[in-house]
């Protein structure tokens, strides 16, 4: 086992996770806002933000799908050591990590059931850039409108059309995170 597997967890797990969760909560509660989130360092290509989300939210009870863009032995070993999350196919995943293209197709993931819409996957989408510009966002958490450079628009419109079922998203880049819950309405910017 390499040191990279043993290292890179949260230095002060309880407090670091508390700060990380608040960043994630803020991001998902206010779609389009970009927050700093850091503390964990995973093997490439996983960003600090995605690594921190994973150690903050994942554990042995949350099956994780690692998309081909991130499917390396080093990252899998790191996730196993740091979280104990079991690896799963997209259809069984509570969380998924990868680039937008690698995570496709979205139809593969659980969107919840009418009685339990919370039983839906959360996708952590690694982005080359993350900026509050581009697609126009409206809905809960947004005062008037917000903007985010989403990888596309149609997929999020289709996701919103399933509400209250649907997928929820975190977008990560470096040590920054933005959120997009299924409740957000998205139009071309």
């Amino acid at each position: 086992m390499q040191n990279a597997v043993l290292d890179g967890g949260l230095a002060d797990p309880a407090r670091d996770a508390a700060f990380a969760f608040r960043a994630a909560l803020d991001a998902l509660s206010r779609p389009g806002t970009i927050r700093q989130i850091e503390g964990a360092t995973a093997p490439a290509p996983c960003s600090a933000a995605a690594a921190t989300l994973i150690v903050t939210l994942c554990d042995p009870t949350t099956p994780l799908y690692v998309a081909p863009s991130h499917d390396t032995e080093a990252l899998r070993d790191w996730i196993t050591f740091q979280t104990g999350a079991p690896f799963a196919a997209a259809k069984d995943a509570v969380f998924a990590i990868g680039t937008w293209d690698a995570l496709a197709p979205l139809g593969a993931y659980a969107v919840g059931t009418p009685a339990y819409p919370d039983r839906a996957a959360t996708l952590i989408v690694e982005m080359p850039t993350l900026d509050a510009e581009g697609a126009v966002l409206t809905g809960p958490g947004i005062k008037d409108t917000a903007h985010l450079n989403l990888p596309e628009v149609a997929a999020f419109q289709a996701n919103r059309a399933q509400f209250p079922l649907g997928l929820d998203f975190f977008f990560t880049c470096g040590a920054r995170v933005a959120g997009l819950p299924r409740s957000t309405r998205v139009t071309e910017g």
Partner: peptide, 8 residues
């Protein structure tokens, strides 16, 4: 909490 936020 995050799922609650996603489905107000």
């Amino acid at each position: 909490i995050l799922k609650g936020v996603a489905v107000p």
